[in-house]
C-alpha cells in the first residue's frame, strides 16, 4: 500500500495547477481537523489553570508548566483515591502484556491447525469463532461477571486477562488463519515426507514465516486490550482498574475544581502507548485494521 504509486488520474497540466493547489488546501484543512484535538490536548496540558481560563483554546502556552503532568501521573484524584494514573497505568501493562502474548500464541496455533491441518469440522469451528468476534460484548457481560466470581478471580487482573484472552482468540485465530492459508499446503507435505511432525513443522517452518502477521496480531491485540473500557469497568474493582477506567474516573471526578490541564495530561498518558506503537509500526496497525474488517 505504501509504495504503490499509480499514475495520477488528475494530470498536472498547466490549467490544472490551480486545481492541484485546491486539492492540497483541502487535504491540509482535513489534516488540521484531525490534528487539532491532539494539539489542544498537548497545549492545554502544558498550561496552568489560570492561563486556561483566561486564554483561547488554541493559543500556545505562554508559561509552559509540567505541573499538570506530575499531578496526572502521581496525585490526581479519582473518587476517593488520589494516586494519579500511575498505579492504573501499571495495571494496564500488567494485564495487557500477558493477555496479548497468550491470545496471540493461541491464535497462531489455531490458525495453523485450521489453515494447514484441516480436519472434518475445522471449518465449522472457524465459522463459529468468526461469528463470536462480532457479538456485542454486552451479551456476555452478566454471565462473565458471575463466572469470574465463581472462579474466584472477580475484580482481579488475572480475571481481566482471562476475559481478554477468551474474546481475543477469535480475532487472533482469524489473522493467523488468513495468513497461513496463503502458504501452499505442499510445504507441510514436503516437511512430512522429510520426517517432521506437527510441532516441528510449526516451529521450524511456520514460525520463521510469521513475523509480519505476528506484528499485526500483537499490535491489534495490544491496541484493543489497552484501549478497552467495557471489560475494564465491568470486571475490575478499586485497585485493579486499567488506565482507561482510571482516566474516565479522574475526568469525571466530582470532587474539587475541574483541572482541565490535568485531564488532558492524563488522557495523553493513557493514549501514549498505543500512539507510540502507531508511530513506530503504523504499517502493521493499518494492516490489522483492514484485515480485521475486510477479512481476506
Amino acid at each position: 500500500m505504501v509504495d504503490a504509486t499509480p499514475a495520477p488520474l488528475v494530470n498536472p497540466r498547466a490549467g490544472q495547477v490551480a486545481l492541484r493547489w485546491l486539492l492540497f488546501a483541502i487535504l491540509a484543512l482535513f489534516a488540521l481537523f484531525y490534528l487539532m484535538p491532539l494539539f489542544v490536548m498537548i497545549t492545554t496540558s502544558l498550561k496552568s489553570l489560570d492561563e486556561i481560563r483566561s486564554g483561547s483554546l488554541v493559543a500556545l502556552p505562554v508559561q509552559v508548566t509540567f505541573e499538570a503532568w506530575r499531578t496526572a501521573w502521581s496525585s490526581a484524584c479519582s473518587g476517593i483515591q488520589c494516586e494519579g494514573l500511575r498505579p492504573y497505568f501499571w495495571n494496564s501493562v500488567a494485564l495487557t502484556v500477558p493477555a496479548v502474548a497468550v491470545s496471540t500464541l493461541i491464535g497462531a496455533v489455531n490458525g495453523y491447525v485450521i489453515a494447514q491441518w484441516k480436519f472434518r469440522g475445522a471449518n465449522l469451528i472457524f465459522s463459529l469463532m468468526l461469528f463470536g468476534c462480532f457479538i456485542p460484548f454486552q451479551v456476555v457481560l452478566l454471565p462473565m461477571a458471575r463466572t469470574l466470581g465463581f472462579m474466584g478471580v472477580a475484580g482481579t487482573i488475572p480475571g481481566l486477562i482471562f476475559v481478554h484472552v477468551i474474546y481475543g482468540i477469535g480475532f487472533t485465530t482469524l489473522f493467523f488463519r488468513n495468513y497461513y492459508v496463503t502458504i501452499p499446503v505442499e510445504l507441510v507435505k514436503a516437511a512430512k515426507v522429510d520426517g517432521a511432525g506437527f510441532f516441528r513443522i510449526f516451529w521450524s517452518i511456520f514460525m520463521p514465516l510469521s513475523l509480519p502477521i505476528m506484528m499485526v496480531t500483537v499490535i491489534w491485540q495490544f491496541t484493543q486490550i489497552w484501549n478497552d473500557f467495557l471489560f475494564g469497568v465491568s470486571f475490575s474493582q478499586a485497585g485493579t482498574q486499567p488506565v482507561t477506567v482510571a482516566l474516565n474516573n479522574i475526568v469525571n471526578s466530582t470532587t474539587g475544581v475541574k483541572e482541565y490541564n490535568v485531564n488532558m495530561a492524563a488522557a495523553i498518558i493513557a493514549a501514549f502507548p498505543t500512539l507510540f506503537v502507531y508511530a513506530v509500526a503504523g504499517k502493521y496497525f493499518i494492516r490489522g485494521l483492514t484485515a480485521g474488517s475486510v477479512k481476506g
Binding site: E186, A190, V193, P208
Partner: peptide
C-alpha cells in the same frame, strides 16, 4: 518427493 511448486522452506 518433489512438488510442482517445489515447496522449498522459504526461510531456510
Amino acid at each position: 518427493m518433489v512438488f510442482q511448486s517445489y515447496a522449498l522452506y522459504p526461510t531456510m
